[in-house]
Amino acid sequence: MDRNGKIYILPTRFGVVFFIGIVLMLLVGATYSNNLVNMLAFFLLAIAFVAMVQTHNNLKNIKLQKVSVEPGFAGSTVSLTTALENTGTAPRFNLEVRAQKMKFDREPENAQPLQARATLRFKSEYFAETRGRYPLKRLKISTIFPVGLFYSWMWIPTDETYLVYPQPKGDQPLPSTKLESFAGPHALTTRGGDDFYGHREYRPGDPARRIDWKAFARGRPLLVKEFDEGDPAAVVFDYDQLQGMTQEARLSQLAAWVESAKQQRLSYALRLPHVVVPAGDDYQHYLRCLEQLALFPAEPTSPSDKIRGERTRGRLSP
């Protein structure tokens, strides 16, 4: 019952019209006992039959080689790039790749056939609605080749996730608060009880005292706590500085600042209630900041809290 990788097929709207046409022709042929009309109807029937097989076969031996999603801002688009490999011996035509449950922004444009034993990249763009990290779930690969009478598709599961950054919006000017106005780098990094701004994977040679043993004990891999002193001249974008706004408006404003700081090539740091991104000015830093903004916890409590709450109220029976 594994639905993945199985090829499905259904007639298209035109396939149904075509079939009705054939039935009509057969009726005309029988009514006027005209064998040439019968012949025409049978020919069309044969075409439809063979087309059905060919539409199905057009998806055979197609493997997903690579998939990646370029993150985007909410309200704009994210773009999906997939590389499909054809392990079969015949070229595949007119393929379409799209992500499940995502709205197309633009019809994907790849008129190239996927040649035998070759790989081809497909690009499609989707609307990004609200910020956050989303699973890509499944990809749908479909085709109506060769004559548009049948639509064939298959699902390919992916573990891929993608990010949607908050929409950069807000008219507040760039803050002038400098990192040095805080009481040294430690004042920033010790905030909120955590004395690190992030983890990275353990590499041989890392000092043992910087390994997060607590996390390791929880069953996670070896992680190294990272500390960064940062550039004292950097601007600080502080979440708490933005008062009297909703959470999402604050995030949008921060995103707008990050955008304009990137354009002005400023060095900047991002300060959120639960995490701090130390100062930086390169592209990686820019992405890190936006990622933190995208993953900012949503306002209501997480669903796992709720379930726990319901249980404690004793309303559940196992």
């Binding site: 012949m39 049978f42 020919f43 029937l45 044969a46 075409i47 039959f49 063979v50 087309a51 097989v53 060919q54 015949a90 070229p91 035509f93 007119n94 008129a111 190239q112 056939p113 109506i144 080749f145 060769p146 004559v147 548009g148």
Partner: peptide, 29 residues
């Protein structure tokens, strides 16, 4: 067929699927 192939080139190689379509359709017909 041409309307759905999308590949605008019409080399003899690219006509092969059309030939196959008609070639298989013939005995079925």
């Amino acid at each position: 067929f041409q309307l759905h192939k999308r590949d605008r080139r019409t080399s003899p190689r690219s006509l092969r699927p059309a030939m196959r379509l008609l070639g298989v359709a013939l005995p079925v017909w």
